[in-house]
Computed example of a mutant assay.
Amino acid sequence: MTRSVFCKKYQQEMEGLARPPYPGPRGQEVFDNVSRQAWEEWLQHQTRLINEKHLNMMDADARKYLAEQMDKFFSGDDYDKAEGYVPEKS
């Protein structure tokens, strides 16, 4: 059985994650308030940001930047896009 959450990105009840994506309060906050669909979209966007901006995940500033972008992504604020990304045509 799937669990539902009120997704803060889409502002509606949607399927939630099966477990918190990482430990601690931040992971629990994502688990409680972000849908599986929004999380998967974030992971794809995060990968594009890391690749396009050549982020080193060993760098604390890069991790802080991604955390800020994740908050903006889920809250509907204006977030950074990967400059070279062109979506595939379906």
Rank of each mutant, 00 (worst) to 15 (best):
T2W: 02
R3F: 02
R3I: 10
S4F: 13
V5M: 00
V5L: 01
V5I: 05
F6Q: 03
K8M: 10
K9N: 06
Q12R: 15
M14W: 00
G16E: 03
L17A: 07
A18S: 14
R19M: 14
R19S: 15
P20G: 05
P21A: 05
P25E: 13
R26H: 09
R26E: 14
G27Q: 01
G27D: 07
Q28P: 08
V30H: 01
V30E: 05
V30I: 15
F31C: 09
D32Y: 11
D32S: 12
D32I: 03
N33T: 15
V34K: 10
V34W: 01
V34D: 00
A38V: 04
W39H: 12
W39M: 11
E40P: 05
E41Y: 08
E41R: 14
W42V: 08
W42H: 08
Q44M: 13
Q44D: 15
Q44H: 14
Q44R: 15
H45Q: 12
Q46Y: 05
R48I: 04
R48Y: 15
N51C: 10
N51P: 03
N51Q: 13
N51K: 14
E52L: 03
H54M: 07
M57P: 05
M57V: 03
M58H: 09
M58L: 12
M58D: 11
A60I: 07
R63T: 01
R63W: 04
R63F: 00
Y65T: 02
L66E: 04
L66V: 02
A67F: 05
A67W: 04
E68W: 03
Q69P: 07
M70Y: 05
S75V: 03
S75T: 11
G76T: 03
D77N: 04
D78F: 02
K81Q: 14
A82E: 06
G84Q: 02
V86Y: 01
P87Q: 00
E88T: 10
K89Q: 13
S90M: 05
